[in-house]
Amino acid sequence: MRNGLVQLGAWAAATGAAVALSWLGVHAVLTGAAFEQPTALPLPSPKADGTPHSAPAAPDQARSAAQSPIPSPPAAPTTAPHGPAPVTTAAPPTRRPAPTATATSTVRSYPIPGGKVALDLKPDRATLVSATPDPGWQMQVWTDGQWLRVDFTRGDEANSVFASWNGHPPIVETAIR
């Protein structure tokens, strides 16, 4: 009996030491690899009159595009064995227009109680850009080929953003319940 208790004590001590050692090793690795939840970028909401904000043009891009024209390849002169050399002319260098911001953005933001949904609205479809729940709210997204739905829930509260585009431009509706 005493021999069995000694063996049980040795087994318990060895098992405890092994668990502690492996926990310390795993804990050290996982502590350095902890990730924070990603945050969504704020999107501009429509102005009070319903018109969208225009995106400012990036001054560096516009300046660099205007200062650096695209050179055309040089024309290589050729000589004919008999007769005069053909005349070669190089086309004038062409310039690409500087990138400009469009007056209307296709990304729209829909803030509702529980969170904010950003959709990229195209003439024939809508794409979810981001959905960010407010603190304490849960979010769920459903998509299909012709519609998408984002729900924000907290307890008995549930609010939704619906977008559908079945053969027509996207229609976005919100439901506050």
Score class of each variant (00 low, 15 high):
1 M>Q: 09
1 M>E: 00
2 R>N: 03
4 G>V: 14
7 Q>I: 15
8 L>K: 05
10 A>I: 04
11 W>V: 09
11 W>Y: 14
13 A>Y: 07
14 A>I: 08
19 V>L: 07
20 A>R: 04
21 L>G: 11
23 W>Y: 10
23 W>K: 03
24 L>M: 14
26 V>D: 12
26 V>K: 10
27 H>G: 02
28 A>V: 09
28 A>P: 07
32 G>T: 02
33 A>V: 08
34 A>E: 03
34 A>K: 15
37 Q>S: 03
38 P>M: 08
39 T>M: 01
40 A>Q: 02
43 L>R: 13
44 P>E: 08
46 P>Q: 11
46 P>M: 12
47 K>R: 04
48 A>T: 12
49 D>R: 11
49 D>S: 10
50 G>P: 04
50 G>I: 10
51 T>S: 01
52 P>F: 01
52 P>N: 05
56 P>F: 00
58 A>K: 00
58 A>H: 00
59 P>V: 12
61 Q>V: 03
62 A>N: 00
62 A>F: 10
64 S>N: 08
65 A>Q: 07
66 A>H: 10
66 A>P: 00
67 Q>F: 00
68 S>D: 06
69 P>A: 11
73 P>R: 13
74 P>A: 14
74 P>F: 15
75 A>M: 10
79 T>C: 10
81 P>W: 02
82 H>C: 07
86 P>F: 04
86 P>Q: 00
87 V>Q: 03
91 A>T: 02
91 A>W: 09
92 P>R: 12
93 P>K: 09
93 P>N: 06
93 P>D: 12
94 T>H: 15
95 R>M: 10
95 R>P: 03
96 R>D: 07
99 P>Q: 15
100 T>A: 15
101 A>Q: 15
102 T>V: 07
102 T>G: 13
103 A>C: 15
104 T>L: 14
104 T>A: 06
104 T>I: 12
105 S>V: 14
107 V>E: 05
109 S>H: 11
109 S>R: 15
113 P>E: 08
113 P>Y: 10
117 V>H: 05
119 L>T: 06
119 L>G: 01
120 D>E: 04
122 K>P: 01
123 P>E: 00
126 A>T: 08
130 S>I: 01
131 A>T: 03
132 T>F: 02
132 T>I: 01
133 P>D: 04
134 D>F: 00
135 P>F: 04
136 G>Q: 04
136 G>M: 08
136 G>C: 11
141 V>N: 10
141 V>A: 01
143 T>D: 06
144 D>H: 14
146 Q>M: 13
146 Q>D: 01
147 W>D: 02
148 L>N: 14
153 T>F: 01
156 D>K: 05
158 A>Q: 01
159 N>K: 05
160 S>T: 15
160 S>P: 07
160 S>Q: 06
160 S>R: 15
163 A>P: 11
166 N>K: 15
166 N>F: 08
172 V>G: 12
173 E>Y: 08
175 A>L: 08
176 I>T: 05
177 R>W: 13
